[in-house]
Amino acid sequence: MFRNTYDSDNTVFSPQGRLHQVEYALEAVKQGSAAVGLKSKTHAVLLALKRSTGELASYQQKMFRIDDHAGIAIAGLTSDARVLSNFMRQQAMSSKMLFNRAIPVNRLVSAIADKAQVNTQEYGRRPYGVGFLVIGYDESGSHLYEFSPSGNSYEYFAMSIGARSQSAKTYLEKHYEEFADASLEDLIRHGLHALRETLQQDKELNVNNTSIGLIGPRSEHEKKGVQPEGAFRILENEAIEPFLKTMVAKEDPPAPAPAASSSGPAASGSGDVQMSG
């Protein structure tokens, strides 16, 4: 059952100086389906792969709106994500009510990172089993952050989390220099291409299994919404059809995959483990 000694209690370090419970929590993030985030000077975009438990079931929600200027994509335990996203919404509302100011995105992320850190140190608690990509737009421009159960948060030009996210990361690392000045359509296309890398063999992105969340001025492919122009919105189903059509087919003979990289344990084998509950 256990992989290690010193892992039954999150407050105890292993002799190697590691907290095994925290590392298991990071593993829970890797079990979740992938999410990709990237940003330009004007936009920030999230893309996520939704999973369903079967033909008869609906797809699990992967994105949450926090406020008009911020939203998240999740990988890991959805129930933990709901707790944290509720907290983020409260923080956002409190900032709006007290100061008439949209909460700066970095403070939103720091707030949940601080909460997560407490769970890695206090007795009788467990770390959150979920990781976030957070996009937002505030006075200092567009932002993309990664949040993880260890209590760390970093800002990125582009990032991916979840199952086989290393493949998406490799794509993003190859192309990120184009992102800053990219149009929204190009940004989403890059995002879809990155997300495609996380798919299992013979699977593909379609209107049912893909979510797109974005912040910034409207795309020509979008319908006029009711919310303020540029506010965070989630596109799903037929709304993402035009974006899927912009994808470029992969170069046909797929180079005999040399199991891309070493660092992604979740990138190997059958991978796509279903979470219970």
């Binding site: 009510m97 100061f99 008439n100 100011r101 700066p104 403070r107």
Partner: peptide, 19 residues
């Protein structure tokens, strides 16, 4: 103290005061 480059302007201070 948050040292993140964000600071309160007159509109924010007025809102806070009114609350």
């Amino acid at each position: 103290t948050s040292q993140d480059g964000h600071d309160l302007g007159p509109a924010q201070i007025h809102e806070y005061l009114s609350q």
